[in-house]
Amino acid sequence: MTKTNEKIHVLADESLGGIKREYVEVDRKAEVGEKIVITASNYEEREEIYVAGHYGKVIAESEFSVNGFEADFNGFDNSFVGDDGLWYVGGPDHGEYRVLEPTNIVHIDGGRYEMVDREAEVGEKFIIVNADVQTEEPYSNGDVFTVDESWGAGDVVTVCGRLINRREYRILVPVESSEEEPQPSDPIDVIANLATRVAELERENKRIKEDLGWNEMGPGRIAELRNADSDIRHDIAALEEKVEHDRAENEEMDSYVYEEMKRMKDEIDTLHKDNRRHGEEIAQLEKGVHAQSQRHLYRQQEIERVWERMDRIESETESLKYAAKETDGKVAHLESDSDMRLFTAEEVAALLNAMRERQ
């Protein structure tokens, strides 16, 4: 820890990656998250809790007093840290401490710089105060770069090739310091410095108004821009809500599609199983049809053979009929040409039987 005077303190700023930053004492009630410096202590002789000059950070409000709170004295260049470093601070008039408010002055590589909120120019140094990494090259709050290129809307490209957005950085303007400069503790010098600072701010304000076209627009234009900005923010919120709603619907649709695809896959698997079963049944039917066809062919061949035999019998019958007819003709001719009587077969048989009986 380094002091430039009794009212200014230089402490590491965690929000800037631990870079040293100047703080000024303010006599008011501390709030959670702020740094404090002890100005009076009831524990000066005991040296086991905290003493004047110790630094701490407010971590919680007190349950016992509206002006009290719990502070963490760890992590500072204090002369000692009592127990776990967590102690109650405060009283009826918060007279034990002063709040340390950060200034725009930082200490880097032994130099003092003022962090100025404006667009960077080529060759200037700047510090990251609100890192929003959009590229593959990482960086964080407290990193210091030099401008190599200046793009539109205040965006810059560093010497190492990183693209930094306007809202992410502050320009580092060297602050000339001298031991002969009046100390802020001198009221006259403080007033003079304040007057100078006010004049600088007025000039800066005038320049900003000219850059914004204040004289052309008038104060009413700012209100219109604010209203337009409010409308845009409202539209953005509505779009974000719609995107969230659409995302929820898409998730529901994805779930429905997944279930449908699963159901259809099950149906396809069932169809494949049915197809295999039907194929087996068709194969069995084809086998049975083939056997039936063989039997039918055999029967057809048998029928054809029967028909052939019937044709032969019919042919033989016709031949016998023809022969009988010729025989009848010959017999009739013989009977007409001879006086001999022809016996029938029955008569011949009867005659033979009679002859046997006589014998």
Results as ranks from 00 to 15, higher is better:
R197K: 07
H245M: 03
D229H: 04
D269R: 08
L225Y: 12
R197P: 03
V198I: 07
M261V: 00
H278C: 03
R276F: 13
D254V: 06
A238M: 10
I303V: 15
R263K: 06
Q301Y: 08
H278I: 09
R299M: 02
R277P: 01
R276A: 03
L285Y: 03
D269C: 08
I232Q: 08
R233G: 05
T196I: 06
A237M: 08
L285P: 05
E202N: 12
Q294F: 13
V306P: 00
E302S: 13
M253H: 06
V289K: 09
Q300H: 09
L225I: 13
E210I: 05
D246V: 09
Q294R: 15
I191Y: 00
T196S: 09
R276C: 01
E200H: 05
E252L: 05
R276W: 09
R197V: 03
L225D: 13
N275L: 13
A238R: 12
H296E: 08
M264L: 03
V198K: 08
H245P: 06
A199Y: 10
H290T: 15
A291G: 10
R197I: 01
G279R: 06
W214R: 02
R233M: 04
E302T: 03
S255C: 04
T270I: 00
R295E: 05
E281N: 04
G279H: 01
S293W: 04
N215F: 01
N215A: 12
Y258C: 13
E244D: 02
G218T: 00
L225M: 13
E204S: 13
N193S: 14
E259A: 11
D274E: 14
L194I: 11
A291K: 11
D231T: 11
Q301R: 08
G220N: 01
L201D: 12
E210A: 12
Y258Q: 15
Y258S: 15
G288V: 14
H272Q: 13
D229Q: 10
W307C: 13
R221A: 13
D231W: 01
R305E: 06
T196F: 00
L201M: 15
D229Y: 10
E249G: 03
V243Y: 10
Q300V: 03
K209F: 09
G213T: 05
R299W: 03
M253F: 08
W214L: 09
N227Q: 00
I282E: 03
V198Q: 00
A223S: 01
E280R: 00
I232W: 02
D246A: 00
L271Y: 02
E260I: 02
D231V: 02
I303K: 10
Q301T: 00
I222L: 14
N215T: 13
L297G: 11
R263L: 08
Y258N: 15
Q294A: 15
Y256A: 01
N193P: 05
A223E: 04
E259G: 08
Y298V: 15
E281W: 09
A192L: 08
E286D: 12
A291F: 07
I208D: 05
